[in-house]
């Protein structure tokens, strides 16, 4: 059987999603968990572009608009997440997730 370009793009993005998922689940460093989540977000953006390019009825700009807004939200998420990492480090002097068991500072 032969795979269409759309299916190949979807396979690529799902492989990237699973790499991010494994990283977010396996690592105990907060920064690496956050980077795994970023990889999963990027896989979702790749899906948008793939469906926009190879989808059945590509509307002119909808997919591109969606990805632009998604990148903006991902940037905000990365900034807040890394600020949280620094706040956790200031409280407990390391950023291992297993030791972040208190909500009160």
């Amino acid at each position: 059987m032969s795979l269409s370009p759309l299916q190949l793009c979807l396979l690529f993005s799902s492989a990237l999603f699973c790499v991010g998922l494994i990283g977010a689940l396996a690592r105990s460093n907060t920064i690496l968990v956050l980077l795994g989540v970023e990889l999963m977000l990027n896989a979702a953006n790749i899906n948008f572009i793939a469906f926009w390019r190879f989808g059945p009825a590509p509307s002119p700009a909808t997919g591109v608009m969606f990805v632009v807004f998604s990148i903006a939200v991902a940037a905000a998420e990365a900034a807040v997440g890394l600020a949280l990492v620094i706040a956790i480090y200031r409280h407990q002097k390391n950023i291992r997730l297993q030791e972040a068991v208190r909500l009160k500072g």
């Binding site: 793009c9 953006n45 790749i46 572009i49 997919g63 591109v64 990805v67 632009v68 990148i71 903006a72």
Partner: peptide, 21 residues
């Protein structure tokens, strides 16, 4: 991933990805 966007023909998204990420 930015190169993938370029390959797919979404140039603006590719350069936004380069700038932001």
């Amino acid at each position: 991933i930015a190169a993938f966007y370029l390959w797919a023909g979404a140039e603006f998204v590719a350069f936004a990805q380069l700038l932001v990420y």
